[in-house]
Amino acid sequence: MAQSGRECSIANALAVVGERWALLALREINLGVTKFDQIARNTGASRDILAARLRALVAAGVVERRQYQDHPPRFEYVATESGVALRPVLHALMAWGDRYATEGEPPTVLAHECGAELHTQTVCAHCGGQVAWGENTRALRLGAVR
């Protein structure tokens, strides 16, 4: 039976990266952790689940599997342009988790190259105004309800 609902880029994105272990693997890769064993350790994912998620991310073009050693063959995972483009999404999820899903101090704090603690915001590329989705935005095109 076909799913009903609005045609939406959010749904399309979730089909690629909307699974816990995929997002946690992307977190690690975007933090510079590229070796399978390190990604598994830092995410807590089982090896078989992590391998499946990394294969899916490679197939979707979000990460690239690169050989870094010949004998024995060893590989690392690096973010593609598509994977790097997900950094603001990861920042937003982290900020939301810090505020609404974590008791006490945030477990991870990112710093900007200027040395300050990183807090991101979404701004309009045209006018530079801060975006509060839903308050000062409107849909120019709405996907059809399927």
Rank of each mutant, 00 (worst) to 15 (best):
R99F: 01
C8W: 06
R87G: 01
A101E: 15
G18L: 06
R66C: 04
L24T: 06
M94Y: 09
N30Y: 00
T43E: 07
H112G: 03
G83T: 02
E81W: 05
R141H: 15
P73N: 03
M1H: 10
I49M: 07
R47W: 09
G143F: 06
R20H: 09
A111H: 15
V62R: 01
A139R: 12
V84E: 10
E103G: 10
A51N: 11
E105W: 01
A56S: 14
Q121I: 11
L54T: 06
A25L: 04
A116W: 03
E117F: 04
D70E: 15
A101G: 04
Y100V: 08
R6Y: 06
A125Q: 10
E28K: 11
P106E: 05
D48H: 12
Q121L: 14
R141G: 07
W21S: 07
N30S: 05
T122H: 11
L54I: 10
I39K: 06
L118N: 01
W21K: 02
G115I: 06
V123L: 14
L118W: 00
P106I: 04
S4A: 08
A60H: 05
E105M: 08
R66E: 13
V33C: 10
N30V: 00
N30T: 02
R66M: 09
L140V: 15
S4Y: 06
W133P: 07
A85L: 08
L26P: 05
A132M: 10
A144H: 06
A45F: 03
V33M: 04
A11L: 13
L54Y: 04
A79H: 07
A132L: 12
A52T: 12
F75A: 07
L23Y: 05
T43W: 08
G97F: 02
T137G: 03
K35N: 09
Q69V: 02
Y100T: 08
R47E: 11
L86T: 02
M1Y: 06
L90W: 02
T108E: 14
V78T: 13
L14K: 12
P106G: 04
N42R: 15
L93K: 01
L31H: 14
F75C: 03
E117M: 10
V58Y: 01
A40G: 02
T34R: 15
D37H: 11
Y68L: 05
A25I: 00
G44E: 06
